[in-house]
Design a binder for these strands. Structure first.
Lengths: 151, 151
DNA sequence: CCCAAAATCACCCAAAAGTATGAAGCCTGA
DNA sequence: TCAGGCTTCATACTTTTGGGTGATTTTGGG
């Protein structure tokens, strides 16, 4: 209840909100004039509530939707791999590193597998990230795959 | 939700409703003088609006969350995805996280997209790694794909 | 031979990711 | 009602990654 309860309070809030809405609606229908507002003001409030609920639903669905349109990437690129590599300026060694991160290897493992130092792998990776415009290895993998550089 | 929840949520709802009703009634009686002023009515309407906006957002996310987990694309795994998931003990939420790391997102981004804390994402990931026998996110992606859990 | 690109490595620092442990609230099914 | 799985979150700690800079070697053409 004190400070770090952030998990579920808003669920309750939501329930309260829904309940409030139902309550107000039923109050309207039953003509129990408990509230001291005039008729027009009551309806005004209800309209506002419904309106905002609708807007909220729309916003919520909007906000949480994943970009489903990103599926039709480049499955059959017209350009051959070599050309894409050249275009991006990715060198053969960098591609090797790229392939290995896609296999789930750590930098250390890649270094050992290529017989180079960890620092070298990092350097290659930095260059790859710059050329693919990625911030993370997972992102680089994703981009490389959609470019057809990786299976 | 998977259709019917037998009968618990509406009980809470009813309870909240009753409580709220009593609360509102007492408010009416004790603060009649305030409510006669136009200013407090405005305030009340604003609260209603915010409340319903919150409810709407919540509902929208809720309705949008379930379809997110059920993916229509089933390549051709020998076992249905559900069965593999059950076998490994991977929960729906964990799968959601798994899907997002495969999209190249950072833990922080996933946390924001799922409206949970960073710590929660890490916990889910730890569990995923254990269940997939992976040490790294890239490895988990790899394994999940070869199992048909991811496209 | 000389140059330039590629490959290699080192440090340092910051940020992100991963590990371990404990715990609370919710939901479901027995 | 009670146990157990799921989800959530926290704290503390270690490891891995990523970013920036600079430097040395290799190598292949011109």
């Amino acid at each position: 209840m004190s400070s770090s309860n952030s998990g579920n309070w808003w669920k309750h809030l939501a329930l309260y909100g829904i309940t409030l809405g139902l309550l107000m609606a039923s109050l309207q229908y039953s003509k129990l004039h408990i509230l001291t507002y005039g008729q027009s003001e009551k309806w005004y409030i209800i309209v506002i509530a419904i309106l905002f609920a609708a807007v909220g639903i729309w916003a919520g669905m909007r906000w949480n939707r994943k970009p489903a349109t990103s599926k039709p990437d480049t499955p059959s690129p017209v350009l051959p791999k070599d050309q894409i590599l050249a275009q991006l300026g990715i060198t053969p060694r960098e591609l090797e590193v790229l392939e290995q991160i896609a296999e789930g290897k750590s930098n250390q493992e890649i270094a050992e597998s290529l017989f180079v130092s960890l620092n070298t792998v990092k350097t290659h990776l930095s260059n790859i990230f710059a050329k693919l415009d990625a911030q993370r290895r997972t992102q680089a993998i994703q981009k490389a795959k959609s470019l057809g550089l990786l299976p």
